[in-house]
C-alpha cells in the first residue's frame, strides 16, 4: 500500500462540512420528514408490539455471563465458606479494598478461614483480579451492580453480605474461573437456614478497613 497525498494509507473521503450543512439546511420539508419518522415508530410500537424501551429497573437487559458485578463468596457442600483466608485477593487488589482477618479452622485439613472478610465496594474498581488470584474458586463476581444505600458504611460488605444477600440468585453469577462452578457453589438460604460463622461479623468502621490498605504504602 503506497501512501497517498495527505499521508493516509487508504483513500479517505474528505467531507466539506459547510457544504453538508447547506444540504441539511432545516426547511419545512425536513421538519415534516422528522415527524413522519416519529409517527411511523409510534404506529409500529402500538400495533406491531415492537417496543425497544426497557422499563428499568423492573426489567433489565440480560448481562453477560462474564459481567463483573459485586462479589460473591462461595461455599462448600456443607455451607461453610470456601475461602481459606490466603490473602491472595487482598494482595493483588489494585484498589486495596479487601480486608481480611484469619482464624483457626477446627478442621486441620482446612486450617484457616476468614473471621472477617470485608470489601469496600466504593473503593473496588471491579477489575476481577481477586477472582483470578483466588486458588480456591472462593470469590467470584455476580451480575449485580446496584449500590443504593443510606450510609457509606453500608457499602462495605462483610462475609454475610458477600456470601448470602438477596439478589444473587436473581441475577446469577458473573465473572468466574469455571463456567459451571467446579469446586464450590453459591450459598442458598433454603438449603442452609443459618449462615455459618455469623458471630464473627462485628461492627465495621471504614478506618479499620483502611488499615489494610495503608500497609503497602508505608
Amino acid at each position: 500500500m503506497t501512501p497517498v497525498s495527505g499521508g493516509y494509507a487508504v483513500d479517505v473521503p474528505t467531507i466539506n462540512v459547510s457544504e453538508r450543512a447547506r444540504g441539511e439546511h432545516a426547511t419545512i420539508w425536513s421538519t415534516f420528514r422528522a415527524f413522519a419518522v416519529t409517527l411511523r415508530r409510534l404506529f409500529t410500537s402500538l400495533f406491531k408490539g415492537d417496543i425497544p424501551t426497557i422499563n428499568y429497573p423492573e426489567e433489565s437487559r440480560p448481562y453477560s455471563e462474564r459481567f463483573r458485578g459485586t462479589h460473591i463468596l462461595t461455599v462448600r457442600d456443607d455451607g461453610s465458606l470456601k475461602c481459606v483466608a490466603c490473602y491472595m485477593c487482598a494482595t493483588i487488589c489494585p484498589a486495596e479494598c479487601i480486608y481480611i482477618e484469619a482464624g483457626e479452622h477446627p478442621n486441620p485439613e482446612i486450617e484457616k478461614f476468614p473471621t472477617r472478610f470485608d470489601i469496600d465496594m466504593m473503593r473496588c474498581i471491579y477489575c476481577g483480579f481477586c477472582v483470578d488470584a483466588c486458588p480456591e474458586e472462593a470469590i467470584i463476581m455476580s451480575r449485580e451492580h446496584h449500590q443504593s444505600v443510606y450510609e457509606r458504611s453500608e457499602t462495605i460488605y462483610g462475609i454475610e453480605k458477600l456470601m448470602a444477600r438477596p439478589g444473587i440468585d436473581a441475577k446469577g453469577p458473573g465473572y468466574r474461573p469455571n463456567r459451571p462452578m467446579a469446586e464450590a457453589k453459591i450459598f442458598k438460604k433454603q438449603e442452609q437456614q443459618t449462615c455459618p460463622f455469623p458471630s464473627h461479623i462485628e461492627e465495621r468502621h471504614p478506618a479499620v478497613l483502611y488499615e489494610s490498605m495503608i500497609r503497602r504504602r508505608g
Binding site: P206, A207, Y210, E211, M213, I214, R215, R217, G218
Partner: peptide
C-alpha cells in the same frame, strides 16, 4: 505494618 512517618488523613487513612 504501616508507614513509620506521618501522612494521610488522621483517623481515616493514616494509621
Amino acid at each position: 505494618t504501616a508507614r513509620a512517618a506521618g501522612g494521610g488523613i488522621p483517623g481515616y487513612t493514616a494509621t
